[in-house]
Every structure is written in C-alpha cells, then in structure tokens.
Amino acid sequence: MSAAVEEISANQYDERVLGAETPVVLDFFSTECPPCEALAPKYEAVAEQFAGKVRFLKIFRQGNRELATRLGVSGSPTLLFFKSGREVGARMTGEDIKRSALKSAVEALLP
C-alpha cells in the first residue's frame, strides 16, 4: 500500500475528512469488487502526484456501513471530494473512473 493513500474508519471521519485543512478525496471501497481493484493503482498514482496538497483517504465499506448509509453511498468504488469540511463537486462511482478524469476533479479542488 502506498503511503500516499491512508485508510481511515468511520470514527475518524469528522477529524480527518471534515476537519482537514487540505482538500480531501475519500474512496469507499469493498472487497470482491473488481472495479475497486481497477481504481486502486490509478488512485495511488494521482495521490502521489498531489502529495502534500490534497489528502487521499480510503474507507472500507463493509466495516463502516453506517457512515456509508448516512452519506448515501450505495456502490463501490465511490469517490467523494471535500473542501473546508464540505462535500463539493460530483461524486465518481463505478467501473469507468479514468485516471485523467480523477486528476481533473482533484485539480478543481485546488485554489
């Protein structure tokens, strides 16, 4: 696992996501989910590119069901984008999350 992407659990959500000083990308993933496997290397590559500017986190859906339900997340992978404690932009979900599209979405988080 690359150091650029850190795994959190629901009890860290308030502090690590909502309370973060930098923009945050949060990836809800599951096991036995080929689209999640496909996203992982792209997510890490983009995370490395933006290291220090944007935080890339991931959260295991099966272990954090309540948070997923509360956020209305019903599929894996789902990427949520946060800035100053608020969700911004469109979520990205499902099989065809392109690396270039993710990069553009992350760039949009920066000033």
Binding site: C33, P34, A68, S74, G94
Partner: peptide, 17 residues
C-alpha cells in the same frame, strides 16, 4: 442517483442492499 441507490453491477454493489 448513480452510486446513491442506482447500480449497474450486482456483484459489486449487491451487499449494500
């Protein structure tokens, strides 16, 4: 509602339901 209740992949998202 894609990813917020609508899915195109049962093996990926079935367990959410």
């Amino acid at each position: 509602f894609k990813g917020r209740g609508i899915s195109y992949c049962a093996t990926c998202d079935g367990a959410y339901f």
